[in-house]
Amino acid sequence: MTSALVSITLRALLNRRRTLGLALLGALLVVVAIIYRLSDPPDAQSLDVTRRLLADFGIGVLLPLVAVIVGTSAIGAELEDGTIVYLLARPVPRRLIVLVKLAISWLVTCLLITPAIVIAGLIGNGDVELAAGYAVASVVGALEYTTVFVALSLVTSRALIVGLAYVVVWEGFVSALFAGTRPISIRQHALAWAEALGGPGAAGSADLEFMTAVVIGAVVVVAAVLVAIRRLETVELRGETA
């Protein structure tokens, strides 16, 4: 039962042209790191530049972009197309559908992002601790982003636009201006993990206490999962025109 769900979800997410596009985005991070390395930079600078590359580009742009697209298409696209009916008209607990979809989108997002982050980190500076810290940050961030976006796709049919607006306006704009909003920025949660685990090179990544980030992050994930399950249990399917 679960394996059938997993294989359908995996194929739906991976079988599309845009997965290739998303993989190219990850490759872009590596390419920038290579170009930077080829310019033969001084050691003192490379740690800071690599950190900025991983933080601003990897965690700040790539991760939310990939997570919003993967997360909102895991269930949202099936709802929009109407194919979700082939999962819902089965004696499968809705809870299980949500959890499998979540796990798969998390996995796919990590597959698309984390290797690129590790490789870019190792190429950019070679500091293993920094690369590892950001790898963990990308995995944790991917979990939080995808759960939130999967839940969002069950709440509104315009989840991708709303998600993009959240990333650009809230995380990019508002939280840059108003420090008080940073505790509810997923980017800051991920960066807090990078700072905590990334060694001395990652210092200054986040503007948030590690424990604050962990607690708020955990609350957000649990709440999003519960919302998603609840919404899928009561989702109504209308006909073509609805």
Partner: peptide, 12 residues
């Protein structure tokens, strides 16, 4: 149940 909408998993 056979829905009216034509959408199917085209990749399967």
């Amino acid at each position: 149940f056979v829905p009216e909408r034509e959408a199917v998993y085209g990749f399967l």
